[in-house]
């Protein structure tokens, strides 16, 4: 089994693997990164807010910015267009068939939304928004999910005033315990079941692309 599962569980560590770097040989390759270079690329924002920039924005201002940059795919109300992601709605659907996973219903950390909008959006012109615009867009997405009002000024100071509904909705990979019965040295080879009947056919659904 994965050694890392032990690490996550806080038990034994593979200490030999972890200990060696102090003795590592260096090759003298590469050059030191300059501060402004690191600043240009190191944009990620962590769940505890590390990396959040100065700036602020609210949903009132964000509505127009969202319509300009995001609405074509995500809809003016963050409801999604065609197959593009829906960013709002879906509250209390996670235990239903086909749950609707949105920023409001699913995303556990607000940092993820800010980080993603700032680094990866808008689709086709990423990293063109100002930090104030990103704050405003994130505020509008939160507003669309009824998580803040339209005057709430989102900034690094107010960031953790926002409660993400599904913050407690995640557990760490537990397959080695919840699926421990898949580890069996003696899989059935004969008489494993009495009969076999077809319960579903792909041809009936007919959604496979044609090869021609």
């Amino acid at each position: 089994m994965s050694k890392f599962l032990n690490l996550v569980a806080g038990t034994a560590l593979a200490s030999t693997l972890i200990a060696a770097p102090a003795l590592a040989e260096k090759y003298g390759l590469g050059r030191p990164a300059l501060e402004e270079e690191v600043a240009a690329w190191d944009l990620d924002v962590a769940p505890d807010g590390t990396g959040l920039p100065e700036g602020s924005g609210n949903a009132y201002d964000g509505e127009e910015i969202f319509a300009d940059y995001c609405g074509v795919c995500h809809g003016d109300f963050a409801e999604g267009v065609d197959n593009w992601p829906k960013l709002a709605g879906g509250a209390d659907t996670l235990d239903h068939d086909d749950p609707l996973k949105t920023v409001g219903s699913y995303w556990p950390y607000l940092s993820t939304t800010f980080d993603y909008v700032r680094r990866s959006m808008p689709f086709g012109s990423a990293q063109t928004l100002s930090n104030d615009e990103v704050y405003a867009i994130v505020a509008y997405i939160l507003f669309s999910n009824d998580l803040i009002d339209d005057e709430f000024e989102l900034s690094k100071e107010t960031f953790f005033d926002v409660e993400m509904p599904n913050a407690e909705g995640f557990i760490l990979d537990d397959r080695t315990t919840s699926e421990a019965h898949f580890w069996t040295d003696t899989p059935c080879m004969e008489g494993c079941k009495d009969k076999v009947e077809i319960t579903m056919r792909a041809a009936v659904l007919d959604v496979t692309p044609d090869e021609e």
């Binding site: 990620d44 962590a46 980080d115 993603y116």
Partner: peptide, 14 residues
């Protein structure tokens, strides 16, 4: 980037 926490980016949460 060596960090002291998981960044929990979009592709590891949503």
């Amino acid at each position: 980037e060596v960090t002291d926490q998981a960044i929990e980016s979009r592709e590891e949460t949503s």
